[in-house]
Design a protein around this nucleic acid. Sequence first.
DNA 1: CGGGTCACG
DNA 2: ACGTACGTGACCCGG
Length: 886
Amino acid sequence: MAEKRLLLIDGNSVTFKAFFALYTALGKFTNSEGLHTNAIYGFNTMLETMLKVVQPTHALVAFDAGKTTFRTKMYDNYKGGRAKTAPELSEQFPYVKELLAARGIQTYELANYEADDIIGTLAKQAEEQGFTTTIVTGDRDLTQLADDHTTVSISKKGVSEIEHYTPAYVKEKMGVTPAQIIDIKGLQGDNSDNYPGVTGVGPKRAVELVSTYGSIDGIYDHLADITAKKLKEHLIADHDQALLAKQLATIKRDAPVEKTVSELVYKGDDYDQLVPFYQKMNFNQFLSKMSIDGEAPTATPGLEEVTYTVLTADNVTELPSFTDGCEFYLEMLDDNYHTAELAGFVIGHNDQWWVSRDTALLQQAPLKGLLENADIAKQVFDAKRTFVALQRLAVTLTGVDCDLLLGSYLLNTYDNSNDLGRLAMEHGYHQVATDEDVYGKGAKAAIPDDDDVFFSHLARKARAIEQLRPQIFKDLADNEQTDLYRDIELPMAFVLARMEVAGITVEASELEAMGSKFTEQLAEIEQTIYNEAGEEFNIGSPKQLGHILFEKMGLPVIKKTKTGYSTAVGVLEKLAAEAPIAENILKYRKIAKIQSTYVEGLLKVIHPDDQKVHTRYLQTLTQTGRLSSVDPNLQNIPVRNEEGRAIRKAFVPSHPDWEIFSSDYSQIELRVLAHMSHDKQMQEAFREGQDIHAATARRIFKMGPDEEVTPNIRRQAKAVNFGIVYGISDFGLSQNIGISRKQAKAFIDTYFEEYPGVKAYTERMVQQAHELGYVETIAHRRRYLPDINSRNFNQRSFAERTAMNTPIQGSAADIIKIAMIRMEQALKDMQATMLLQVHDELIFEAPASEIDTLAKLVPSVMDSAIELEIPLKVESHYGPTWYDAK
DNA sequence: CGGGTCACG
DNA sequence: ACGTACGTGACCCGG
């Protein structure tokens, strides 16, 4: 007999999961009638995966019937206190059922019972009839149903990420058998279902108790063996609660389900229903997938045909003049556009496309003129990348109107894929493949030899830019982000491009000299460490190091990581008092880091032609609006300790008798906080030019006017200020400055009393995040915080801290970006060149003769970039190397 | 390819 | 009861 495979899905749970997994894209998932479709889409994605993996012969999706069940009769507050289901979600349930009907899968619900109980009951029947069963849910409680013939698949974060629980995996992951899950639940209760277990027992303790005594009954049989006094008291006091909780957690295996397993035959897709359904939902991707699989004769094809003309030296002059603007895309396989081979390009408009592999054509008329003509609007994807690459051909891209990547990132910081095909998909446009699909991935990635494959892909990219542009601009306008896009981010792209192209000179000889010195030092320390350890081992391996320190030498274990012993700085510093080896390891680590990352790392990326390094600033990556820097990262060159700082001696001007000049904002984040919070006290401190950390110390420690602020007290106040900016928690602060949590809480409370405006600000940001789902910077940069309503404490807390921090960090990023754009203008008649940005600092090179001018000009541009309620302060330094510009 | 560690603001 | 400071990137190890 053929194998019988049953697929059982918890419809409510999976729909919920899908809804929240695609929550940030909620706005993108609507059909033409305004119905939200993200949960339906996510559900179907999950379903596709499961159908493929399980290949079921039978299937059913169970739903909850209503609010009252036999459990609410047992316990009034069962699932009480739950937030009402969002209407955007509840409207989707009927369509999930319609989808399932079209896919040939039955649905079922039963009054007084939850979906779990239907599943438990049918799984039991199936077991008796020799089925192999797969249960799909988002709820870990169902792992209690795992057995030799039943796997429980839990959809994790995303809808496509699925974890399969067999009994062995349950044991490994949760530390108990499937049958013991209910005992765990009995002890710890369930917050989301709103019932308590035993006071003081969390997951850790519950697992410990259950694995020792087997079950709740086992624990109460051996109460005498339990020595922890408090625990025992709680166990005794909460016995009834524990038994009730266990009962509530137990899934029924004998619910009065009127269906039998044999009735659940999976019929497969009904195209007459499914195709119109997908069309109604606007699920173009699922539609095209059907046709690729060759299953549905009526569906639209995967990708629409695209026509194009191949450009050559002969016909290039026949190009139109594009007075209405044009789309342009320059293809490179490698990320690093400073060096990547230029593989081809596409240009066109109104769905008329011209393509070529011959990028030399771009250097000739009419293309060069067109690209350099400010009056011909260009629509591109990643303007900075395109600009820098064209600059290598001596073509200066001018007149960019739309950068699809930049616009998309501003709308939603998560929509920042460097792959046009992927990004288009995130906006619901499916008529262009991803680069991975066309070019392949990893080492095997290559531009196709087949002209039609390559050119069609290019033409589709240009068409995607043309099609998506109106929507992006409309959405930006709706979000009041047009100014941010037009006046800050788009000009910023070209400022950054020119900084990247300029590069900064690094003296290889200086690095090499340092390198040989470090090599010697490392060899010496290495020997000392081997002697102290009594054997040779790899000091760079935390695993081997942990073995030596804590097993062989028997040093006390101070902290553990997920995988073993922690050997982080804090731990080694504590050990240093009793073991000199710890001190030496710290020394070794410090030098090894400088050597590998900065000496060797930088030497590898110095360009042989010009002795410079050319970083790439990622403008569409961070969630706050900051830049990041890669290949190499020039935003984390050492400065805090002397050995590392010496690396900066290798960064020099590119001409003799020039200097490195640097200006940085002083306390910009706290000033932004003082501005945004309107806090009177904090503003006063800044207006009077006080040392803000000392002023804070006076306030939170209630010091008299004559009392001296000692360095230690100031350090503590500084940590509190930082904490506030990061979105404070008493735990975090206590860890940072080594005080008790209680003391930390007292500090924070006093801080908020002294700076009530700051307190109101933090509360306002968290509230806004709850109400609108996002927070904003001064320039309307937006960050969505989907986890702000999470029932997971950790996720929610993180989102809350982020809600406080992002407007501050992000507004500081807005400010320096404005300054950079104005700076470039201000420098246009000077030789001085802006080279680097390090978040609150700008670095230039300039002839010595221009330094006096710069020393006035740069701070004035920077501190007037934006008008705040308090002044901005800028400090400047210069010298013959970056090291000296301090 | 993820985790640990450490460099920066 | 939960278990955290915010934002990044590069290197090394080991599976």
